[in-house]
Amino acid sequence: MSAAAEAPALGLHTDLSNEAYHADKTSLSSSGARKLLPPACPAKFRYEQDQPQTPTKTFDYGNAAHREVLGNGPELVLVDHELWNTDAIRNEVSAIRESGGIPLKRHELDMVQAMAAAIRQHPLAKLLLDPAYGAPEQSGFWIDGPTGIRRRVRFDWLPSTHAGRLIIPDYKTADDASNDAMSRSIAKYGYHMQADWYEDAARAFGLGGEDAELLLIAQEKKPPYLINVVGIPFEDRFIGRAKNRRAIEIWAECTTTGIWPGYGDEPNYVSLPAWSAIRDKETYL
């Protein structure tokens, strides 16, 4: 991409396609920031940026559910065969993907439609995603003050009324949306970093004052498609802010030097996990 000719302009975009958003390599996203930090590293981030994503069923389910729940995204195309094991069907599936669609089996399409119906029955989730008061897939680009790099965000949903406190809903599909499972998911996937990133973006665009807050709408992918609206405490979002700042600094340095380091060029002394060290000390020492 030519940064001068093709990078999206700074500010909010209401009609930027998902493809155009992700094609911009001149800016850093929340998901990119999370991939720059351990257990990943800049070299892995750079490789993934340069390689096309291979579709997976998990990826398809997430995107398909987003389309049904939020009303925006790739076309969902029914491939009404239980097995996709002939050349003709495989060619049909490939053609759908090449055109930007998501091929689904009958039970998969039924699943995402049932998930969307459950969202519309949930008293809080349906309010947070009410199309009368917001719109899906809003993109934004802004300049980070301390480093001068371009940052970007793509809100799953952005409320159209910005007076008072801004609540930013973000939709997630999950195998388990219970509180315990979501606590682990926040740590594993860095959702506390995402929360701070999106809230920082809202402040950069002058939306909803200084106390914007992201809420996760987590939904299970099996009946009865339970929903858990999850907030992330301030102290955890504060940790996310510190991690975001480090990722931004790494991005700025790597883009300046053109060097995207891996795990290091010197030996790394790696300790046993705490639980293993405690167990073995008690048993053998």
Rank of each mutant, 00 (worst) to 15 (best):
L104D: 01
A7M: 09
L104W: 02
E266M: 09
D15R: 08
A174H: 07
R46C: 07
W142Q: 09
A5N: 13
D211K: 03
F205E: 01
S94K: 15
N228Y: 09
A117F: 05
F45E: 01
T257I: 04
D87W: 04
C41D: 15
E220S: 08
T147C: 02
S2R: 09
T14W: 14
Y191T: 11
H81K: 05
L28D: 02
L216I: 15
T173G: 02
R67N: 03
Q51C: 10
A20T: 05
I217Y: 00
L124I: 08
E266Q: 12
D130K: 06
M115G: 07
K172D: 01
P223D: 07
D87S: 13
G190R: 03
K25I: 04
G145L: 15
Q51K: 12
L285W: 13
E235G: 03
S185N: 12
A218F: 07
M115V: 14
E266R: 10
P55G: 08
R241P: 09
D200V: 08
H162K: 08
K105G: 04
A204I: 07
D265F: 02
A181V: 14
K221G: 12
S183D: 12
I89F: 10
A132P: 10
L214F: 02
L128P: 09
H66A: 13
A195K: 01
Y198F: 12
S99D: 15
V270E: 12
F45W: 10
P159N: 05
